[in-house]
Simulated assay, not measured.
Amino acid sequence: MTTSAESAPTEYDRNKGLDRIHPKAVQLLGDTFGIVMYESVLQPGDSVVWHEHPYHTVYVLEGGSLTVYFEDMEPQPFELPKGAALIQPPLGDMAVNTGETSVRLLTHDLYSLNP
């Protein structure tokens, strides 16, 4: 497991795509110009296994409660309101929907931004 930008993935490996790791909750929407876009839907109690991102954006389509696990950190609870957006550096994480509603996210993995 890794969270550092220096050791984050710089090339997209389709076999490690989040849609292949967790197809129940993640759908690939596009893969072009070094940008991989997918939608994740986590029902209450669902989780997404450990995975790694390059630089990436997340947009909350349907909000709710997630607990996110990062390497060498305590679990981080997040309340994600609909319409919230963020951009993050390369990191690895896993997440659990700890709320009572589904959470729907649009994520862009930006391999084109890696050096």
Rank of each mutant, 00 (worst) to 15 (best):
Q76A: 13
V49Q: 15
S7W: 00
T32I: 14
S7A: 06
P23N: 12
P77K: 07
T57L: 08
A8I: 02
V26K: 08
V96E: 05
S112W: 01
L86T: 15
V58K: 07
L113M: 04
L61P: 00
H53W: 03
P9Y: 01
V96Y: 03
G64I: 02
K16W: 01
F70K: 15
Y111L: 00
R20K: 15
L42M: 09
T98M: 03
E74W: 01
N114F: 02
E100P: 00
K16M: 10
L61F: 03
V68T: 15
L80Y: 08
F78E: 14
F78W: 10
S4V: 04
A25S: 13
Q43A: 15
L105H: 04
V48R: 15
Q27H: 02
P77E: 07
P75V: 05
P115Y: 02
M1C: 15
T3L: 08
E71L: 06
E100T: 10
P9M: 02
D31S: 08
M73R: 13
S102D: 08
G34Y: 02
T57A: 10
Q88G: 15
G83C: 05
G34T: 05
L113Q: 05
R14G: 01
Q43V: 08
E6W: 00
G92H: 04
L18N: 12
V36A: 00
F70R: 13
D46G: 12
D109G: 01
Q27P: 00
P75S: 08
D13A: 05
I87H: 05
V41D: 03
G30A: 14
K16A: 10
V48H: 12
V103P: 01
Y59K: 14
T3H: 07
S47G: 15
S65A: 13
V26Y: 00
K24W: 00
Y38A: 10
P81L: 06
A5I: 08
E74A: 13
A95L: 07
V49F: 08
L29E: 14
G83F: 00
P44M: 12
L91K: 09
T107D: 01
P89M: 05
F70L: 15
D31R: 07
A25K: 10
P44T: 11
G83A: 08
F70S: 12
A25T: 14
D19N: 07
T10W: 02
T98D: 03
H51F: 10
K16D: 07
T67R: 13
V26I: 13
A25H: 13
L80A: 09
Y38T: 11
H22I: 11
H56K: 01
L91S: 04
Q76P: 06
I35W: 01
A85F: 12
V58I: 15
M94S: 12
A84R: 14
Q88H: 10
Y111E: 02
F70I: 15
D72G: 05
A95T: 14
Y59S: 11
S102R: 05
E79H: 14
E39V: 12
E39P: 07
H56A: 03
T2Y: 06
Y55Q: 13
Y69D: 13
A95P: 07
